[in-house]
Design a protein around this nucleic acid. Structure first.
Lengths: 379, 379
DNA sequence: TGGATTTGTTCAATGGTTGAATTATTTGAG
DNA sequence: CTCAAATAATTCAACCATTGAACAAATCCA
């Protein structure tokens, strides 16, 4: 019994699809290997014959996605293996981020290394979206990348249009088209929490399923289910900030009452602690209310989705040690399966860069997932 | 931009996989067609050449999954098409259900027609699980089916073991193994709400994403995301009955407070209406509290998962007209995207048989999804 | 030095799809 | 009534990717 009853796709499969799939399989096997891996080990790991792996690897080397390296040292007899690794200069992904108080851009290479990074603090609330995007374009390095993705704090439709970004004052902005024309690149647009969740995929191995919760002015969540980002019907999943935690409680700017944001959002958290800024938060501040609200909301999420891991990012990352007791108290009470299996609560590996890094990584990921179309596109 | 960033699978693909995939593609194209469909139309619909479709169809006819029928009448010149349709006797799926107060079994054929149906009312709370399963086995018709699935009201692990079924008094029962040995069939075990959700898949077209909420003694949910049942990390997804809706509210038998079940479960609903049984529910009974609680919980689910459709089953199906106003009131207030796109609230197409039918259909579905392994398994 | 061992390549065979040509069957125009 | 046009289905050589076995390459160890 698999984790998912898979609906079969509706596209025909021909021989070239077989090659495309196996090309991706080999590339990802090399990519996820710690050390340089031999063709023979790749064959064993994938189930393809050595002959096939050799043919596919040759192609990937010629096209510049793989390079030969010194292999991991090995004892025993036999011809020494040639090590394979991702080519550091094989492709580059551009990650962009627009937030309330800064713009940011970074470039990562195929191996995930950050090659370039700029952050420009500036309040965007007073600018029009054209000004903001133009400023972002001036921030990006010239040429050489094969794709880009933009993280925005708002609702993004499946066609890449930013429907609403309340804190930016945006409505129905086709940021993807604007940037795509300005940069001469395909540009994907995505909610920041979704992309931040993707940045955690590398840290989680296997076929991961987890929820990423990002605490900022608002609270967003990215859901990675069975190893893939779940976006929802229209791309608006993860609006955890407006989960009702105290249905008759404080009024929220969304018009409802008792939304999580009113108890665990940055402003509520600071107000409860009597601090003006995060930096000014006293070490002994009482975060119990925020933690309890988070715990109530997360208990619902876990009961619904049967997640075993929650990753806390944004302002929650550094605050996790102080939030943990109250979150875990509520989870222990309210998660139906708490007695059967534990829930792991973890701080995000990346800090403020998570969304931007996730954006850049989504570009690289799309190449690793489907090298065949990447190669035909660029040649 | 697709609805899901797909993680590529880790298995190699060979020519035989191509055939397996295209076999499934052709079979499903025929299956989802309203009228008998010609080879030529199938070719156009799938993108495969007519030569390939003919070859695949021949195979499917010889192996008994397809039959030729009179085609849909057509005007104009040209050789008349031969109609293709699922073979009614091609395969049979056995659906089983254990619930607190009845046992049930049904057989459906490839086309989804019910060929056999038994329901045996009997309180299972006083029986051991061996007695219950033995009774269920005596209920099932002899032979002829190619697989079975069992619906149970409880938490089912990925390996098919019923970890907990509170209302049956079960704990760690390997019902799959017992039934598999008794019936000489592969038997899948699954939560009843999940299978009931599957039974709604036929009604929903395309690549549906919806939540199915089943009101019984407890409240369960089945999530169909991008056309596939989402089970969660361990198979325990959908425990919507224990979503906190009034965190400091009524104590729940799960140990927490304010769970949805305490406001919208069958018992709470009857108590609030002052009725002893569902049949005794007065027409003017006030269901506002239950509806509001459901609305609060569903608003959270929709904010989190961006669903555009909620299907209400179990006791909620017939009560939907009276629950709808209070549910929709809460959804309208609390769903962040309520102003951007509507949420459809629909009663389940099937009534009490939903879980059993969904179980039987899951067997048929697995054949339609992967005819190649079905055919190699039976020959 | 040579046998054992492991890596990587070569090549004919296999199996599945393709596309063009061919056959089959009907409608409609003259 | 006959024939051209149209549509459906089949046949067959060509193509393409993987396979498996044989072979070449490079190292270790006795």
């Amino acid at each position: 019994m698999t984790a998912r009853i898979q609906a079969s796709s509706t596209v025909p499969v021909r021989q070239s699809s077989v090659r495309a799939h196996n090309l991706a399989l080999v590339l990802q096997t090399v990519a996820t290997s710690e050390n340089p891996i031999s063709r023979a080990s790749t064959s064993a790991a994938t189930g393809l014959t050595r002959a096939t792996v050799s043919a596919l690897v040759d192609d990937l080397i010629v096209r510049g996605l793989l390079v030969e390296r010194e292999p991991a040292p090995r004892s025993g007899a036999g011809r020494p293996a040639a090590g394979l690794a991702l080519a550091p200069d094989g492709a580059f992904g551009l990650g962009l981020e627009i937030n309330v108080d800064y713009l940011a851009a970074c470039v990562i290479d195929l191996t995930g290394q950050v090659r370039h990074r700029v952050v420009a603090p500036a309040d965007q609330r007073s600018s029009s979206w054209e000004e903001t995007l133009a400023r972002l374009v001036r921030l990006t390095p010239a040429g050489g990348v094969s794709g880009a993705a933009l993280a925005v704090p708002g609702l993004v439709s499946a066609d890449g249009i930013v429907r609403v970004a309340p804190n930016l004052g945006w409505q129905d902005v086709d940021a993807g088209r604007y940037l795509s024309e300005a940069l001469g690149l395909p540009v994907a647009v995505e909610n920041e929490a979704n992309l931040a969740a993707l940045s955690e995929l590398r840290a989680a191995g296997g076929r991961p399923t987890f929820g990423y919760v990002s605490g900022e002015i608002g609270i967003g969540a990215g859901l990675v289910l069975d190893g893939a980002l779940y976006r929802g019907v229209r791309g608006w999943s993860g609006e955890i900030g407006h989960l009702p935690v105290h249905p008759d409680g404080r009024p929220c700017r969304c018009g409802a009452r008792g939304c999580l944001e009113q108890y665990a959002g940055q402003e509520a958290l600071l107000r409860a602690a009597g601090a003006a800024t995060l930096a000014g938060l006293p070490d002994d501040a009482d975060l119990g209310e925020a933690g309890a609200a988070l715990g109530i909301a997360l208990a619902g999420v876990i009961n619904l989705l049967d997640l075993d891991t929650i990753v806390l990012g944004g302002i929650y990352g550094p605050l996790l040690p102080r939030l943990r007791p109250s979150i875990e108290h509520e989870l222990g009470r309210r998660v139906l399966t708490a007695g059967l299996a534990p829930v792991t609560l973890r701080a995000a590996a990346l800090g403020a860069d998570a969304a931007m890094r996730g954006a850049a990584e989504s570009v690289i990921r799309s190449i690793l997932d489907d090298p065949a179309t990447f190669l035909t596109r660029t040649t």
